Simulated scan of single mutants.
Amino acid sequence: MSAVLVINSGSSSFKYQLIDMDTERPLASGLVERIGDSSGHTTHEGPNGKSERTVDIPDHTAGFRAMLDAFEANGPSLDEFPPVAVGHRVVHGGKRFFEPTVVTPLVEINIEDLADLAPLHNPANLEGIRAAEKAFPDVPHVAVFDTAFHQTLAPEAFTYAIDADLAEKHRVRRYGFHGTSHKYVSEKAAEFLGRPLGELKQIVLHLGNGASACAIDGGRSVDTSMGMTPLEGLVMGTRSGDIDPAVLIHLARRAHLDTNGLDELLNRKSGLLGLSGHGDMRDVQATADAGDPDARLALDTYSHRLKHYIGAYIAILGGLDVLSFTAGVGENAPAVRAGAVAGLEGLGIRLDASRNAERGSGVRVISTDDSPVTVLVVPTNEELEIARQTLEAIDAG
Protein backbone atom coordinates (compact mmCIF):
# COMPACT_ATOMS: atom_id res chain seq x y z
CA MET A 1 0.00 0.00 0.00
CA SER A 2 1.19 3.53 -0.82
CA ALA A 3 -0.34 6.07 1.54
CA VAL A 4 0.04 9.84 1.21
CA LEU A 5 -0.50 12.28 4.04
CA VAL A 6 -2.07 15.56 2.87
CA ILE A 7 -1.62 18.71 4.96
CA ASN A 8 -3.54 21.98 4.62
CA SER A 9 -1.93 24.35 7.11
CA GLY A 10 -3.23 27.68 8.35
CA SER A 11 -1.77 30.10 10.86
CA SER A 12 -3.63 28.65 13.85
CA SER A 13 -4.80 25.28 12.56
CA PHE A 14 -4.17 22.54 10.04
CA LYS A 15 -6.30 19.86 8.43
CA TYR A 16 -4.88 16.48 7.46
CA GLN A 17 -5.92 13.36 5.62
CA LEU A 18 -4.14 10.04 5.16
CA ILE A 19 -5.13 8.51 1.81
CA ASP A 20 -4.60 4.97 0.57
CA MET A 21 -3.53 5.67 -3.01
CA ASP A 22 -4.22 2.10 -4.15
CA THR A 23 -7.93 2.66 -3.57
CA GLU A 24 -7.86 6.49 -3.36
CA ARG A 25 -9.87 6.26 -0.14
CA PRO A 26 -9.10 8.12 3.10
CA LEU A 27 -7.76 6.05 5.95
CA ALA A 28 -8.05 8.88 8.48
CA SER A 29 -8.64 12.61 8.64
CA GLY A 30 -8.49 15.27 11.28
CA LEU A 31 -8.10 18.85 12.40
CA VAL A 32 -5.63 20.44 14.79
CA GLU A 33 -6.81 23.90 15.82
CA ARG A 34 -6.14 26.72 18.27
CA ILE A 35 -2.41 26.45 17.67
CA GLY A 36 -0.62 28.87 20.00
CA ASP A 37 -3.20 28.25 22.71
CA SER A 38 -2.88 26.25 25.93
CA SER A 39 -6.33 24.81 25.18
CA GLY A 40 -5.62 23.57 21.67
CA HIS A 41 -8.05 21.11 20.17
CA THR A 42 -7.65 18.01 18.00
CA THR A 43 -10.26 16.04 16.12
CA HIS A 44 -9.34 12.72 14.54
CA GLU A 45 -11.52 10.29 12.61
CA GLY A 46 -10.12 6.86 11.74
CA PRO A 47 -10.99 3.16 11.81
CA ASN A 48 -11.71 3.32 15.53
CA GLY A 49 -14.19 6.16 15.14
CA LYS A 50 -13.98 9.84 16.01
CA SER A 51 -12.02 11.24 18.94
CA GLU A 52 -11.42 14.72 20.31
CA ARG A 53 -8.84 16.07 22.74
CA THR A 54 -7.95 19.38 24.37
CA VAL A 55 -4.19 19.76 24.69
CA ASP A 56 -1.50 22.44 24.91
CA ILE A 57 -0.42 23.27 21.33
CA PRO A 58 2.07 26.16 21.45
CA ASP A 59 3.17 25.85 17.81
CA HIS A 60 2.83 23.79 14.63
CA THR A 61 5.52 21.32 15.73
CA ALA A 62 3.48 20.55 18.84
CA GLY A 63 0.42 20.29 16.60
CA PHE A 64 2.06 17.54 14.58
CA ARG A 65 2.99 15.70 17.79
CA ALA A 66 -0.66 15.88 18.78
CA MET A 67 -1.63 14.51 15.36
CA LEU A 68 0.82 11.60 15.73
CA ASP A 69 -0.64 10.88 19.19
CA ALA A 70 -4.11 10.77 17.63
CA PHE A 71 -2.97 8.25 15.02
CA GLU A 72 -1.36 6.12 17.71
CA ALA A 73 -4.42 6.20 19.95
CA ASN A 74 -7.17 5.89 17.35
CA GLY A 75 -5.57 4.43 14.24
CA PRO A 76 -4.62 3.58 11.75
CA SER A 77 -1.10 2.74 12.86
CA LEU A 78 1.48 4.74 10.90
CA ASP A 79 3.82 1.78 11.31
CA GLU A 80 1.32 -0.34 9.41
CA PHE A 81 0.40 2.43 6.93
CA PRO A 82 3.49 4.64 6.70
CA PRO A 83 3.10 7.59 4.33
CA VAL A 84 5.40 7.40 1.32
CA ALA A 85 5.18 11.19 0.99
CA VAL A 86 3.55 14.26 2.50
CA GLY A 87 1.65 16.61 0.20
CA HIS A 88 1.17 20.23 1.21
CA ARG A 89 -1.31 22.77 -0.07
CA VAL A 90 0.47 26.06 -0.76
CA VAL A 91 -1.70 28.95 -1.84
CA HIS A 92 0.64 31.13 -3.87
CA GLY A 93 3.35 29.93 -6.24
CA GLY A 94 3.63 33.18 -8.18
CA LYS A 95 4.90 32.57 -11.69
CA ARG A 96 7.74 30.40 -10.39
CA PHE A 97 5.85 27.19 -9.65
CA PHE A 98 3.71 25.65 -12.37
CA GLU A 99 3.65 22.02 -11.18
CA PRO A 100 3.81 20.03 -7.92
CA THR A 101 7.30 20.50 -6.54
CA VAL A 102 9.39 18.42 -4.16
CA VAL A 103 10.25 20.65 -1.21
CA THR A 104 13.91 21.65 -0.83
CA PRO A 105 15.50 24.48 1.17
CA LEU A 106 15.44 26.60 -2.01
CA VAL A 107 11.73 25.89 -2.54
CA GLU A 108 11.06 26.98 1.04
CA ILE A 109 12.95 30.23 0.43
CA ASN A 110 10.83 30.88 -2.65
CA ILE A 111 7.58 30.17 -0.81
CA GLU A 112 8.67 32.63 1.85
CA ASP A 113 9.64 35.22 -0.76
CA LEU A 114 6.17 34.98 -2.29
CA ALA A 115 4.53 35.69 1.07
CA ASP A 116 3.95 39.34 0.18
CA LEU A 117 1.49 38.11 -2.47
CA ALA A 118 -0.37 35.92 0.05
CA PRO A 119 0.52 37.21 3.53
CA LEU A 120 -2.32 35.33 5.23
CA HIS A 121 -1.53 32.01 3.59
CA ASN A 122 2.05 31.35 2.47
CA PRO A 123 3.69 31.92 5.88
CA ALA A 124 1.20 29.53 7.48
CA ASN A 125 1.67 26.98 4.68
CA LEU A 126 5.43 27.18 5.25
CA GLU A 127 5.05 26.68 9.00
CA GLY A 128 3.12 23.52 8.27
CA ILE A 129 5.80 22.27 5.87
CA ARG A 130 8.62 22.82 8.36
CA ALA A 131 6.73 21.19 11.22
CA ALA A 132 5.81 18.23 9.01
CA GLU A 133 9.45 17.80 7.96
CA LYS A 134 10.34 17.37 11.63
CA ALA A 135 7.57 14.83 12.14
CA PHE A 136 8.33 12.92 8.91
CA PRO A 137 12.03 13.52 8.17
CA ASP A 138 12.57 10.40 6.04
CA VAL A 139 9.95 10.89 3.29
CA PRO A 140 9.70 13.47 0.51
CA HIS A 141 7.49 16.50 1.00
CA VAL A 142 5.72 18.01 -2.01
CA ALA A 143 4.22 21.49 -2.39
CA VAL A 144 1.06 21.65 -4.51
CA PHE A 145 0.23 25.24 -5.45
CA ASP A 146 -3.29 26.67 -5.83
CA THR A 147 -1.98 28.94 -8.57
CA ALA A 148 -0.20 26.27 -10.64
CA PHE A 149 -3.18 25.18 -12.75
CA HIS A 150 -3.56 28.74 -14.04
CA GLN A 151 0.00 29.00 -15.35
CA THR A 152 -1.46 28.17 -18.79
CA LEU A 153 -3.19 31.56 -18.98
CA ALA A 154 -2.11 33.58 -22.01
CA PRO A 155 -0.50 36.99 -21.43
CA GLU A 156 -3.66 38.80 -22.50
CA ALA A 157 -5.59 36.90 -19.82
CA PHE A 158 -3.18 37.51 -16.93
CA THR A 159 -2.05 41.08 -17.71
CA TYR A 160 -3.53 44.11 -15.95
CA ALA A 161 -3.54 47.33 -17.97
CA ILE A 162 -1.33 49.39 -15.68
CA ASP A 163 2.23 50.70 -16.10
CA ALA A 164 4.17 47.67 -17.33
CA ASP A 165 7.41 48.44 -15.49
CA LEU A 166 5.59 48.98 -12.21
CA ALA A 167 3.63 45.76 -12.65
CA GLU A 168 6.80 43.77 -13.39
CA LYS A 169 8.67 45.21 -10.43
CA HIS A 170 5.92 44.42 -7.96
CA ARG A 171 4.73 41.15 -9.56
CA VAL A 172 1.28 42.50 -10.36
CA ARG A 173 -0.66 40.14 -12.64
CA ARG A 174 -3.49 37.63 -12.51
CA TYR A 175 -2.47 34.39 -10.83
CA GLY A 176 -5.79 32.72 -10.05
CA PHE A 177 -6.60 30.34 -7.20
CA HIS A 178 -8.61 27.18 -6.41
CA GLY A 179 -6.56 25.59 -9.18
CA THR A 180 -6.39 22.21 -7.45
CA SER A 181 -10.19 22.08 -7.28
CA HIS A 182 -10.72 23.34 -10.83
CA LYS A 183 -8.32 20.72 -12.17
CA TYR A 184 -9.93 17.88 -10.21
CA VAL A 185 -13.51 18.85 -11.13
CA SER A 186 -12.82 19.33 -14.84
CA GLU A 187 -11.11 15.93 -15.04
CA LYS A 188 -13.87 14.26 -13.01
CA ALA A 189 -16.52 15.76 -15.30
CA ALA A 190 -14.79 14.37 -18.40
CA GLU A 191 -14.45 10.97 -16.73
CA PHE A 192 -18.13 10.96 -15.71
CA LEU A 193 -19.26 11.85 -19.23
CA GLY A 194 -16.91 9.32 -20.81
CA ARG A 195 -15.42 11.97 -23.08
CA PRO A 196 -11.77 12.92 -23.68
CA LEU A 197 -10.74 15.87 -21.52
CA GLY A 198 -8.89 17.37 -24.47
CA GLU A 199 -12.05 17.86 -26.52
CA LEU A 200 -14.18 19.60 -23.87
CA LYS A 201 -14.85 23.28 -23.30
CA GLN A 202 -15.75 23.64 -19.63
CA ILE A 203 -16.63 26.23 -17.02
CA VAL A 204 -16.16 25.25 -13.37
CA LEU A 205 -17.80 27.32 -10.63
CA HIS A 206 -16.10 26.69 -7.27
CA LEU A 207 -18.60 28.24 -4.87
CA GLY A 208 -17.68 28.15 -1.20
CA ASN A 209 -17.02 30.93 1.29
CA GLY A 210 -14.37 31.85 -1.27
CA ALA A 211 -15.59 31.52 -4.83
CA SER A 212 -14.09 31.50 -8.30
CA ALA A 213 -14.95 30.68 -11.91
CA CYS A 214 -12.59 29.05 -14.37
CA ALA A 215 -12.75 28.64 -18.16
CA ILE A 216 -11.05 25.38 -19.16
CA ASP A 217 -10.32 24.47 -22.77
CA GLY A 218 -9.08 20.94 -23.37
CA GLY A 219 -8.00 20.58 -19.74
CA ARG A 220 -6.10 23.91 -19.69
CA SER A 221 -7.10 26.96 -17.69
CA VAL A 222 -7.59 29.86 -20.12
CA ASP A 223 -9.25 32.37 -17.79
CA THR A 224 -10.22 32.61 -14.14
CA SER A 225 -12.02 35.14 -11.97
CA MET A 226 -9.61 35.49 -9.04
CA GLY A 227 -6.66 37.70 -9.79
CA MET A 228 -3.42 38.72 -8.11
CA THR A 229 -5.19 37.82 -4.85
CA PRO A 230 -8.31 35.78 -4.03
CA LEU A 231 -10.31 39.02 -3.72
CA GLU A 232 -11.20 39.61 -7.37
CA GLY A 233 -14.14 38.10 -9.22
CA LEU A 234 -17.34 36.60 -7.82
CA VAL A 235 -19.31 37.77 -4.79
CA MET A 236 -18.15 35.67 -1.84
CA GLY A 237 -19.03 35.13 1.81
CA THR A 238 -17.15 38.16 3.13
CA ARG A 239 -15.19 39.36 0.04
CA SER A 240 -16.49 41.92 -2.41
CA GLY A 241 -15.22 40.42 -5.64
CA ASP A 242 -15.08 42.82 -8.59
CA ILE A 243 -15.30 46.52 -7.72
CA ASP A 244 -14.41 49.76 -9.46
CA PRO A 245 -10.90 50.58 -8.12
CA ALA A 246 -11.89 54.24 -7.91
CA VAL A 247 -14.29 53.27 -5.11
CA LEU A 248 -11.23 52.68 -2.93
CA ILE A 249 -9.84 56.12 -3.76
CA HIS A 250 -13.24 57.64 -2.98
CA LEU A 251 -13.48 55.85 0.39
CA ALA A 252 -9.94 56.82 1.29
CA ARG A 253 -10.77 60.47 0.65
CA ARG A 254 -14.30 60.66 1.99
CA ALA A 255 -14.52 57.90 4.62
CA HIS A 256 -10.86 58.33 5.65
CA LEU A 257 -10.13 54.62 5.35
CA ASP A 258 -6.44 53.73 5.24
CA THR A 259 -5.00 50.65 3.53
CA ASN A 260 -5.70 48.47 6.57
CA GLY A 261 -9.27 49.72 6.73
CA LEU A 262 -9.83 49.08 3.04
CA ASP A 263 -8.33 45.61 3.36
CA GLU A 264 -10.65 44.85 6.29
CA LEU A 265 -13.66 46.19 4.39
CA LEU A 266 -13.10 44.29 1.13
CA ASN A 267 -11.90 40.97 2.56
CA ARG A 268 -13.88 40.59 5.78
CA LYS A 269 -16.88 42.92 5.77
CA SER A 270 -18.15 42.74 2.21
CA GLY A 271 -19.73 40.11 -0.03
CA LEU A 272 -22.85 38.41 1.32
CA LEU A 273 -22.00 39.61 4.82
CA GLY A 274 -21.78 43.24 3.76
CA LEU A 275 -25.01 43.12 1.77
CA SER A 276 -27.19 41.06 4.12
CA GLY A 277 -25.49 40.79 7.50
CA HIS A 278 -24.92 37.05 6.94
CA GLY A 279 -21.76 35.51 5.47
CA ASP A 280 -23.10 31.95 5.24
CA MET A 281 -25.19 31.23 2.15
CA ARG A 282 -27.59 29.04 4.16
CA ASP A 283 -28.42 31.96 6.44
CA VAL A 284 -28.76 34.35 3.51
CA GLN A 285 -31.13 31.98 1.72
CA ALA A 286 -33.25 31.41 4.82
CA THR A 287 -33.48 35.13 5.51
CA ALA A 288 -34.39 35.87 1.90
CA ASP A 289 -37.07 33.18 1.96
CA ALA A 290 -38.49 34.89 5.06
CA GLY A 291 -38.91 38.08 3.03
CA ASP A 292 -35.85 40.13 3.94
CA PRO A 293 -35.12 42.52 1.04
CA ASP A 294 -31.41 42.89 1.84
CA ALA A 295 -30.89 39.14 1.71
CA ARG A 296 -32.85 38.94 -1.55
CA LEU A 297 -30.66 41.67 -3.06
CA ALA A 298 -27.56 39.78 -1.89
CA LEU A 299 -28.72 36.61 -3.67
CA ASP A 300 -29.66 38.53 -6.82
CA THR A 301 -26.26 40.25 -6.87
CA TYR A 302 -24.52 36.91 -6.35
CA SER A 303 -26.45 35.36 -9.27
CA HIS A 304 -25.91 38.38 -11.53
CA ARG A 305 -22.13 38.13 -11.07
CA LEU A 306 -22.19 34.40 -11.80
CA LYS A 307 -24.15 34.99 -15.02
CA HIS A 308 -21.68 37.69 -16.00
CA TYR A 309 -18.77 35.26 -15.78
CA ILE A 310 -20.61 32.36 -17.41
CA GLY A 311 -21.43 34.53 -20.41
CA ALA A 312 -17.95 36.00 -20.61
CA TYR A 313 -16.30 32.61 -20.48
CA ILE A 314 -18.56 31.15 -23.16
CA ALA A 315 -17.28 33.97 -25.35
CA ILE A 316 -13.64 33.31 -24.36
CA LEU A 317 -14.03 29.58 -25.02
CA GLY A 318 -16.01 30.03 -28.23
CA GLY A 319 -18.72 27.70 -26.96
CA LEU A 320 -19.41 25.44 -24.01
CA ASP A 321 -19.84 21.71 -23.46
CA VAL A 322 -19.96 21.39 -19.66
CA LEU A 323 -20.83 23.70 -16.76
CA SER A 324 -19.96 22.27 -13.32
CA PHE A 325 -20.91 23.49 -9.84
CA THR A 326 -18.68 22.47 -6.94
CA ALA A 327 -17.66 23.24 -3.31
CA GLY A 328 -19.98 23.84 -0.37
CA VAL A 329 -22.42 26.26 -1.96
CA GLY A 330 -22.14 24.87 -5.48
CA GLU A 331 -22.83 21.32 -4.31
CA ASN A 332 -25.57 22.03 -1.79
CA ALA A 333 -27.57 25.11 -2.83
CA PRO A 334 -30.10 24.31 -5.60
CA ALA A 335 -31.49 27.86 -5.53
CA VAL A 336 -28.04 29.31 -6.20
CA ARG A 337 -27.51 26.98 -9.15
CA ALA A 338 -30.93 27.86 -10.55
CA GLY A 339 -30.30 31.57 -10.13
CA ALA A 340 -26.93 31.37 -11.83
CA VAL A 341 -28.33 29.94 -15.07
CA ALA A 342 -31.82 31.45 -15.12
CA GLY A 343 -32.39 33.07 -18.51
CA LEU A 344 -29.36 31.45 -20.15
CA GLU A 345 -31.38 29.06 -22.30
CA GLY A 346 -30.34 31.10 -25.33
CA LEU A 347 -26.73 30.14 -24.54
CA GLY A 348 -27.62 26.45 -24.53
CA ILE A 349 -28.00 26.01 -20.76
CA ARG A 350 -31.28 24.33 -19.79
CA LEU A 351 -31.70 23.29 -16.18
CA ASP A 352 -34.01 20.45 -15.12
CA ALA A 353 -35.75 21.78 -12.00
CA SER A 354 -36.47 18.37 -10.47
CA ARG A 355 -32.93 17.09 -11.02
CA ASN A 356 -31.51 20.29 -9.59
CA ALA A 357 -33.64 19.95 -6.45
CA GLU A 358 -32.54 16.37 -5.76
CA ARG A 359 -29.86 15.74 -3.15
CA GLY A 360 -26.97 13.42 -3.90
CA SER A 361 -23.42 12.65 -2.91
CA GLY A 362 -21.80 11.89 -6.25
CA VAL A 363 -21.44 13.49 -9.67
CA ARG A 364 -24.87 14.12 -11.17
CA VAL A 365 -26.48 15.77 -14.19
CA ILE A 366 -28.92 18.60 -13.43
CA SER A 367 -29.59 19.78 -17.00
CA THR A 368 -32.36 18.56 -19.27
CA ASP A 369 -31.70 15.70 -21.67
CA ASP A 370 -31.93 18.07 -24.64
CA SER A 371 -29.67 20.76 -23.15
CA PRO A 372 -26.79 21.55 -25.55
CA VAL A 373 -24.65 22.26 -22.47
CA THR A 374 -24.42 19.53 -19.84
CA VAL A 375 -24.76 21.00 -16.35
CA LEU A 376 -23.23 18.95 -13.54
CA VAL A 377 -22.80 18.97 -9.79
CA VAL A 378 -19.32 17.58 -9.11
CA PRO A 379 -18.18 17.19 -5.49
CA THR A 380 -14.62 18.44 -5.26
CA ASN A 381 -11.83 16.51 -3.55
CA GLU A 382 -8.80 18.76 -3.22
CA GLU A 383 -7.09 16.40 -0.78
CA LEU A 384 -7.17 13.53 -3.26
CA GLU A 385 -5.93 15.81 -6.05
CA ILE A 386 -3.04 16.97 -3.86
CA ALA A 387 -2.21 13.33 -3.06
CA ARG A 388 -2.26 12.41 -6.76
CA GLN A 389 0.01 15.30 -7.67
CA THR A 390 2.32 14.42 -4.78
CA LEU A 391 2.85 10.92 -6.18
CA GLU A 392 3.38 12.37 -9.67
CA ALA A 393 6.09 14.67 -8.33
CA ILE A 394 8.03 11.98 -6.49
CA ASP A 395 7.67 9.54 -9.42
CA ALA A 396 9.01 12.22 -11.78
CA GLY A 397 11.93 12.90 -9.46
Rank of each mutant, 00 (worst) to 15 (best):
V84K: 10
E127Q: 12
G93C: 10
E133T: 12
T104N: 12
I111A: 06
R96F: 14
Y160V: 10
I109D: 15
V102M: 02
P76A: 12
A131R: 00
N74H: 15
G128C: 05
A135K: 00
L106R: 14
G87L: 03
T147M: 05
H141Y: 01
T104R: 07
R89W: 13
A135Y: 04
H88T: 05
E133S: 00
L126W: 05
A115K: 03
A148M: 00
G94A: 09
T152N: 10
A124F: 10
D146G: 04
Q151F: 06
L78I: 13
P137A: 07
H92Y: 12
L120K: 01
E156W: 11
H92M: 10
G75E: 14
F158E: 09
D146N: 07
A124H: 09
V103L: 09
D146F: 00
I111Q: 01
D116M: 04
Q151D: 06
A85K: 01
D113T: 10
F145C: 14
P155S: 05
V90I: 11
V139F: 12
E99V: 07
T159G: 01
R130P: 00
L153W: 11
V84I: 13
V91R: 10
Y160I: 12
A157D: 03
H121V: 10
A115R: 09
L126K: 01
D146W: 05
F158Q: 06
V84Q: 07
A131M: 00
E99L: 08
A85G: 01
N74D: 15
T159Y: 02
G128Y: 06
P76H: 12
D79A: 13
L106N: 11
A154T: 08
E156R: 04
E112N: 14
A154Q: 11
H92N: 11
F149I: 10
P83I: 06
A131V: 07
N122W: 11
N125S: 03
L117V: 08
V142N: 01
A157F: 12
V91D: 07
F149S: 06
N125Y: 00
A131H: 04
G94T: 11
E108H: 02
P83S: 00
P140H: 04
H121L: 05
D116H: 08
P82L: 07
V84A: 11
F98Y: 08
A131K: 00
E108R: 14
G87H: 04
P100Y: 03
L106W: 02
F145R: 04
